[in-house]
Design a binder for these strands. Structure first.
Lengths: 151, 151
DNA sequence: ATCTGTGCAAAAGATTTGCAGTTAT
DNA sequence: ATAACTGCAAATCTTTTGCACAGAT
Protein backbone atom coordinates (compact mmCIF):
# COMPACT_ATOMS: atom_id res chain seq x y z
CA UNK A 1 0.00 0.00 0.00
CA UNK A 2 2.60 2.54 1.04
CA UNK A 3 4.99 1.30 -1.58
CA UNK A 4 2.35 2.09 -4.17
CA UNK A 5 2.35 5.66 -2.86
CA UNK A 6 6.12 5.87 -3.10
CA UNK A 7 5.96 4.59 -6.62
CA UNK A 8 3.40 7.22 -7.57
CA UNK A 9 5.46 9.91 -5.87
CA UNK A 10 8.38 9.02 -8.11
CA UNK A 11 6.15 8.99 -11.16
CA UNK A 12 4.99 12.50 -10.30
CA UNK A 13 8.46 13.81 -9.54
CA UNK A 14 9.79 12.50 -12.81
CA UNK A 15 7.56 15.10 -14.43
CA UNK A 16 8.21 17.97 -12.03
CA UNK A 17 4.90 17.29 -10.30
CA UNK A 18 4.55 17.18 -6.54
CA UNK A 19 2.88 14.79 -4.18
CA UNK A 20 1.23 17.47 -2.07
CA UNK A 21 -0.71 16.70 1.13
CA UNK A 22 -3.96 17.17 -0.79
CA UNK A 23 -2.92 14.75 -3.50
CA UNK A 24 -1.61 12.27 -0.96
CA UNK A 25 -4.86 12.39 1.01
CA UNK A 26 -6.86 11.86 -2.17
CA UNK A 27 -4.70 8.92 -3.18
CA UNK A 28 -4.99 7.47 0.31
CA UNK A 29 -8.78 7.50 0.08
CA UNK A 30 -8.62 5.89 -3.34
CA UNK A 31 -6.24 3.22 -2.04
CA UNK A 32 -8.47 2.46 0.93
CA UNK A 33 -11.52 2.07 -1.32
CA UNK A 34 -10.15 0.13 -4.20
CA UNK A 35 -13.18 -2.06 -4.56
CA UNK A 36 -15.67 0.83 -4.42
CA UNK A 37 -16.55 3.22 -7.21
CA UNK A 38 -16.43 6.62 -5.60
CA UNK A 39 -17.69 9.81 -7.18
CA UNK A 40 -15.71 13.04 -6.98
CA UNK A 41 -18.12 14.24 -4.30
CA UNK A 42 -17.68 11.01 -2.30
CA UNK A 43 -13.92 11.40 -2.45
CA UNK A 44 -14.15 15.05 -1.52
CA UNK A 45 -16.18 14.32 1.59
CA UNK A 46 -13.89 11.51 2.70
CA UNK A 47 -10.77 13.58 2.14
CA UNK A 48 -12.31 16.54 3.92
CA UNK A 49 -12.77 14.51 7.09
CA UNK A 50 -9.01 14.27 7.42
CA UNK A 51 -8.01 17.45 5.69
CA UNK A 52 -10.88 19.93 6.16
CA UNK A 53 -9.19 22.73 4.26
CA UNK A 54 -9.17 21.01 0.89
CA UNK A 55 -11.33 22.43 -1.88
CA UNK A 56 -13.56 20.48 -4.23
CA UNK A 57 -11.79 21.95 -7.26
CA UNK A 58 -8.52 20.56 -5.99
CA UNK A 59 -10.04 17.10 -5.79
CA UNK A 60 -11.29 17.42 -9.34
CA UNK A 61 -7.89 18.63 -10.50
CA UNK A 62 -6.15 15.81 -8.66
CA UNK A 63 -8.46 13.23 -10.19
CA UNK A 64 -7.90 14.69 -13.63
CA UNK A 65 -4.16 14.58 -13.11
CA UNK A 66 -4.20 11.00 -11.87
CA UNK A 67 -6.39 10.03 -14.79
CA UNK A 68 -4.03 11.66 -17.29
CA UNK A 69 -1.17 9.74 -15.70
CA UNK A 70 -3.19 6.53 -16.07
CA UNK A 71 -3.06 5.96 -12.34
CA UNK A 72 -6.82 5.90 -11.95
CA UNK A 73 -9.77 5.04 -14.17
CA UNK A 74 -12.73 7.30 -14.80
CA UNK A 75 -15.98 5.35 -15.08
CA UNK A 76 -19.48 6.30 -16.10
CA UNK A 77 -22.50 4.25 -15.12
CA UNK A 78 -24.91 6.65 -16.73
CA UNK A 79 -26.17 8.18 -13.48
CA UNK A 80 -24.79 11.63 -14.15
CA UNK A 81 -21.61 11.41 -12.09
CA UNK A 82 -18.16 10.14 -12.96
CA UNK A 83 -16.69 7.54 -10.69
CA UNK A 84 -13.06 6.84 -10.05
CA UNK A 85 -11.02 3.84 -9.10
CA UNK A 86 -7.44 2.68 -8.99
CA UNK A 87 -6.10 1.23 -12.15
CA UNK A 88 -4.51 -2.11 -11.51
CA UNK A 89 -1.99 -3.36 -13.98
CA UNK A 90 -3.36 -6.87 -13.56
CA UNK A 91 -6.35 -5.83 -15.63
CA UNK A 92 -5.28 -3.64 -18.47
CA UNK A 93 -8.96 -3.80 -19.35
CA UNK A 94 -11.84 -2.91 -17.13
CA UNK A 95 -13.44 -5.69 -15.24
CA UNK A 96 -17.17 -5.96 -15.80
CA UNK A 97 -19.86 -4.56 -13.56
CA UNK A 98 -23.08 -6.10 -12.32
CA UNK A 99 -25.44 -3.25 -11.53
CA UNK A 100 -28.56 -4.05 -9.50
CA UNK A 101 -31.54 -2.07 -10.75
CA UNK A 102 -33.28 -2.30 -7.39
CA UNK A 103 -30.69 -1.54 -4.71
CA UNK A 104 -28.12 0.07 -6.98
CA UNK A 105 -25.23 -2.06 -5.78
CA UNK A 106 -22.35 -2.34 -8.21
CA UNK A 107 -20.17 -5.42 -8.02
CA UNK A 108 -17.38 -6.57 -10.20
CA UNK A 109 -16.78 -9.76 -12.06
CA UNK A 110 -13.86 -11.04 -14.00
CA UNK A 111 -13.20 -10.10 -17.60
CA UNK A 112 -14.96 -12.53 -19.90
CA UNK A 113 -14.51 -10.91 -23.26
CA UNK A 114 -11.14 -12.00 -24.59
CA UNK A 115 -12.45 -14.51 -27.11
CA UNK A 116 -15.24 -12.24 -28.23
CA UNK A 117 -12.93 -9.29 -28.66
CA UNK A 118 -10.67 -11.23 -30.95
CA UNK A 119 -13.68 -12.12 -33.02
CA UNK A 120 -14.88 -8.51 -33.15
CA UNK A 121 -11.42 -7.24 -34.12
CA UNK A 122 -11.33 -9.68 -36.98
CA UNK A 123 -14.89 -9.23 -38.22
CA UNK A 124 -15.09 -5.47 -37.86
CA UNK A 125 -11.46 -4.50 -38.40
CA UNK A 126 -11.68 -2.50 -35.19
CA UNK A 127 -8.63 -2.35 -32.90
CA UNK A 128 -9.95 -2.71 -29.36
CA UNK A 129 -7.97 -1.09 -26.56
CA UNK A 130 -10.51 -1.13 -23.73
CA UNK A 131 -14.08 -2.02 -22.95
CA UNK A 132 -16.90 -1.04 -20.64
CA UNK A 133 -19.30 -3.81 -19.83
CA UNK A 134 -22.22 -3.20 -17.50
CA UNK A 135 -24.78 -5.93 -16.91
CA UNK A 136 -28.05 -4.63 -15.51
CA UNK A 137 -30.38 -6.79 -13.49
CA UNK A 138 -31.16 -7.93 -9.97
CA UNK A 139 -28.77 -9.13 -7.32
CA UNK A 140 -29.45 -12.23 -5.31
CA UNK A 141 -30.91 -10.51 -2.24
CA UNK A 142 -33.17 -8.25 -4.27
CA UNK A 143 -34.40 -11.25 -6.23
CA UNK A 144 -35.38 -12.95 -2.98
CA UNK A 145 -37.03 -9.84 -1.65
CA UNK A 146 -39.04 -9.49 -4.82
CA UNK A 147 -40.08 -13.11 -4.69
CA UNK A 148 -41.32 -12.72 -1.11
CA UNK A 149 -43.31 -9.61 -1.94
CA UNK A 150 -44.64 -11.15 -5.15
CA UNK A 151 -43.30 -8.32 -7.25
CA UNK B 1 -42.63 4.18 -40.35
CA UNK B 2 -45.97 5.91 -40.02
CA UNK B 3 -47.54 2.79 -38.62
CA UNK B 4 -45.02 2.91 -35.81
CA UNK B 5 -46.26 6.42 -35.04
CA UNK B 6 -49.87 5.25 -35.03
CA UNK B 7 -48.95 2.46 -32.70
CA UNK B 8 -47.25 4.87 -30.32
CA UNK B 9 -50.20 7.21 -30.49
CA UNK B 10 -52.44 4.41 -29.32
CA UNK B 11 -50.02 3.52 -26.58
CA UNK B 12 -50.10 7.11 -25.35
CA UNK B 13 -53.87 7.42 -25.60
CA UNK B 14 -54.36 4.25 -23.61
CA UNK B 15 -52.92 6.20 -20.71
CA UNK B 16 -54.69 9.49 -21.34
CA UNK B 17 -51.52 10.92 -22.84
CA UNK B 18 -51.53 12.92 -26.03
CA UNK B 19 -49.48 12.79 -29.18
CA UNK B 20 -48.98 16.54 -29.44
CA UNK B 21 -47.27 18.20 -32.40
CA UNK B 22 -44.13 18.62 -30.27
CA UNK B 23 -44.08 14.97 -29.34
CA UNK B 24 -44.80 13.90 -32.88
CA UNK B 25 -42.00 16.07 -34.24
CA UNK B 26 -39.59 14.64 -31.68
CA UNK B 27 -40.61 11.09 -32.52
CA UNK B 28 -40.24 11.85 -36.21
CA UNK B 29 -36.65 12.96 -35.71
CA UNK B 30 -35.94 9.87 -33.68
CA UNK B 31 -37.50 7.66 -36.35
CA UNK B 32 -35.47 9.31 -39.09
CA UNK B 33 -32.25 8.83 -37.17
CA UNK B 34 -32.61 5.34 -35.84
CA UNK B 35 -29.00 4.41 -36.47
CA UNK B 36 -27.61 7.54 -34.86
CA UNK B 37 -27.25 8.29 -31.18
CA UNK B 38 -28.58 11.78 -30.78
CA UNK B 39 -28.21 13.91 -27.68
CA UNK B 40 -31.12 15.94 -26.32
CA UNK B 41 -29.50 19.04 -27.77
CA UNK B 42 -29.11 17.37 -31.18
CA UNK B 43 -32.76 16.41 -31.15
CA UNK B 44 -33.80 19.85 -30.00
CA UNK B 45 -31.97 21.53 -32.87
CA UNK B 46 -33.38 19.15 -35.45
CA UNK B 47 -36.92 19.50 -34.14
CA UNK B 48 -36.57 23.27 -33.97
CA UNK B 49 -35.84 23.43 -37.70
CA UNK B 50 -39.36 22.21 -38.40
CA UNK B 51 -41.11 23.50 -35.34
CA UNK B 52 -39.26 26.64 -34.22
CA UNK B 53 -41.52 27.31 -31.26
CA UNK B 54 -40.61 24.21 -29.31
CA UNK B 55 -38.72 24.60 -26.04
CA UNK B 56 -35.75 22.57 -24.90
CA UNK B 57 -37.54 21.58 -21.70
CA UNK B 58 -40.33 20.07 -23.75
CA UNK B 59 -37.84 17.94 -25.63
CA UNK B 60 -36.38 16.75 -22.33
CA UNK B 61 -39.83 15.99 -20.96
CA UNK B 62 -40.79 14.16 -24.13
CA UNK B 63 -37.65 12.07 -24.02
CA UNK B 64 -38.25 11.24 -20.37
CA UNK B 65 -41.81 10.24 -21.16
CA UNK B 66 -40.79 8.06 -24.08
CA UNK B 67 -38.12 6.48 -21.96
CA UNK B 68 -40.57 5.72 -19.17
CA UNK B 69 -42.85 4.11 -21.74
CA UNK B 70 -39.90 2.05 -22.96
CA UNK B 71 -40.25 3.48 -26.43
CA UNK B 72 -36.73 4.85 -26.50
CA UNK B 73 -33.46 3.96 -24.83
CA UNK B 74 -31.29 6.39 -22.91
CA UNK B 75 -27.61 5.74 -23.42
CA UNK B 76 -24.51 7.11 -21.77
CA UNK B 77 -21.12 6.93 -23.41
CA UNK B 78 -19.42 8.77 -20.58
CA UNK B 79 -19.03 12.05 -22.45
CA UNK B 80 -21.35 14.03 -20.22
CA UNK B 81 -24.48 13.90 -22.36
CA UNK B 82 -27.26 11.34 -22.56
CA UNK B 83 -28.07 9.96 -25.95
CA UNK B 84 -31.35 8.58 -27.14
CA UNK B 85 -32.44 6.03 -29.68
CA UNK B 86 -35.46 4.03 -30.66
CA UNK B 87 -35.96 0.80 -28.85
CA UNK B 88 -36.51 -2.00 -31.30
CA UNK B 89 -38.30 -5.08 -30.13
CA UNK B 90 -35.94 -7.20 -32.19
CA UNK B 91 -33.25 -6.51 -29.63
CA UNK B 92 -34.70 -6.58 -26.17
CA UNK B 93 -31.10 -6.02 -25.18
CA UNK B 94 -28.87 -3.26 -26.37
CA UNK B 95 -26.64 -3.98 -29.24
CA UNK B 96 -23.00 -3.30 -28.57
CA UNK B 97 -21.11 -0.17 -29.50
CA UNK B 98 -17.73 0.26 -31.07
CA UNK B 99 -16.45 3.70 -30.05
CA UNK B 100 -13.45 5.09 -31.91
CA UNK B 101 -11.14 6.97 -29.56
CA UNK B 102 -9.74 9.06 -32.40
CA UNK B 103 -12.66 10.23 -34.52
CA UNK B 104 -15.40 9.55 -31.97
CA UNK B 105 -17.55 7.54 -34.36
CA UNK B 106 -19.97 5.16 -32.69
CA UNK B 107 -21.06 2.11 -34.64
CA UNK B 108 -23.14 -0.82 -33.63
CA UNK B 109 -22.52 -4.51 -33.75
CA UNK B 110 -24.68 -7.48 -33.03
CA UNK B 111 -25.29 -8.80 -29.54
CA UNK B 112 -22.65 -11.37 -28.69
CA UNK B 113 -23.28 -11.96 -25.04
CA UNK B 114 -26.00 -14.58 -24.77
CA UNK B 115 -23.74 -17.46 -23.80
CA UNK B 116 -21.71 -15.36 -21.43
CA UNK B 117 -24.79 -13.97 -19.73
CA UNK B 118 -26.12 -17.41 -18.99
CA UNK B 119 -22.80 -18.25 -17.41
CA UNK B 120 -22.79 -15.07 -15.33
CA UNK B 121 -26.36 -15.66 -14.17
CA UNK B 122 -25.42 -19.11 -12.99
CA UNK B 123 -22.11 -18.27 -11.38
CA UNK B 124 -23.12 -15.01 -9.71
CA UNK B 125 -26.82 -15.67 -9.10
CA UNK B 126 -27.52 -12.36 -10.79
CA UNK B 127 -30.65 -12.00 -12.95
CA UNK B 128 -29.60 -10.03 -16.01
CA UNK B 129 -32.23 -7.93 -17.76
CA UNK B 130 -30.07 -5.70 -19.94
CA UNK B 131 -26.51 -4.86 -20.74
CA UNK B 132 -24.37 -2.00 -21.94
CA UNK B 133 -21.30 -3.00 -23.83
CA UNK B 134 -18.95 -0.39 -25.24
CA UNK B 135 -15.74 -1.42 -26.91
CA UNK B 136 -13.20 1.37 -27.15
CA UNK B 137 -10.51 1.42 -29.79
CA UNK B 138 -9.72 2.58 -33.28
CA UNK B 139 -11.84 2.25 -36.37
CA UNK B 140 -10.40 1.03 -39.63
CA UNK B 141 -9.87 4.42 -41.23
CA UNK B 142 -8.25 5.91 -38.12
CA UNK B 143 -5.95 2.90 -37.91
CA UNK B 144 -4.81 3.53 -41.47
CA UNK B 145 -4.36 7.22 -40.87
CA UNK B 146 -2.26 6.51 -37.79
CA UNK B 147 -0.17 4.02 -39.67
CA UNK B 148 0.54 6.57 -42.41
CA UNK B 149 1.53 9.25 -39.92
CA UNK B 150 3.56 6.78 -37.88
CA UNK B 151 1.59 7.53 -34.73
C1' DA C 1 12.34 34.42 -10.10
C1' DT C 2 9.93 30.85 -11.63
C1' DC C 3 6.92 27.12 -11.83
C1' DT C 4 3.60 24.28 -9.52
C1' DG C 5 -0.24 23.96 -6.69
C1' DT C 6 -4.08 25.85 -3.91
C1' DG C 7 -8.76 27.76 -2.26
C1' DC C 8 -12.43 30.39 -3.41
C1' DA C 9 -15.84 32.17 -6.23
C1' DA C 10 -17.65 32.43 -10.56
C1' DA C 11 -18.70 30.17 -14.87
C1' DA C 12 -20.10 26.59 -17.72
C1' DG C 13 -22.91 22.91 -19.53
C1' DA C 14 -26.65 19.48 -19.08
C1' DT C 15 -30.86 18.68 -17.09
C1' DT C 16 -34.94 19.61 -14.10
C1' DT C 17 -38.52 22.27 -12.02
C1' DG C 18 -42.04 26.02 -10.95
C1' DC C 19 -45.41 28.43 -12.82
C1' DA C 20 -48.81 30.73 -15.39
C1' DG C 21 -51.05 30.16 -19.52
C1' DT C 22 -52.95 26.90 -23.44
C1' DT C 23 -55.22 23.00 -25.39
C1' DA C 24 -57.86 18.92 -25.69
C1' DT C 25 -61.49 16.02 -23.70
C1' DA D 1 -64.19 21.69 -15.46
C1' DT D 2 -60.58 18.96 -15.57
C1' DA D 3 -56.32 17.08 -16.61
C1' DA D 4 -52.57 17.08 -19.88
C1' DC D 5 -49.28 19.92 -21.95
C1' DT D 6 -46.47 23.91 -23.09
C1' DG D 7 -42.75 27.70 -23.12
C1' DC D 8 -40.02 30.42 -20.46
C1' DA D 9 -37.06 31.49 -16.84
C1' DA D 10 -35.05 30.11 -12.84
C1' DA D 11 -32.99 26.53 -10.26
C1' DT D 12 -30.08 22.52 -9.74
C1' DC D 13 -26.24 19.56 -10.20
C1' DT D 14 -21.72 18.23 -11.72
C1' DT D 15 -17.58 19.85 -13.40
C1' DT D 16 -14.33 23.47 -15.05
C1' DT D 17 -11.98 27.83 -14.99
C1' DG D 18 -9.94 32.46 -13.55
C1' DC D 19 -7.38 34.52 -10.35
C1' DA D 20 -4.64 36.01 -6.65
C1' DC D 21 -1.92 33.91 -3.25
C1' DA D 22 1.35 30.25 -1.22
C1' DG D 23 5.17 26.94 -1.45
C1' DA D 24 8.88 24.63 -3.41
C1' DT D 25 13.11 24.62 -6.41
Amino acid sequence: MQERLEQIKKQLQSQQLKLTPQREATLQILLENQEKHLSAEDIFMLVKQRNPDIGLATVYRTLELLHDLRIIEKLSFGDGVSRYEFRSDDHPHHHHHLICLKCGEVSEIEDLLDDLEMRVEREHKFKIVDHRVNLLGYCESCQQEMKLKNM
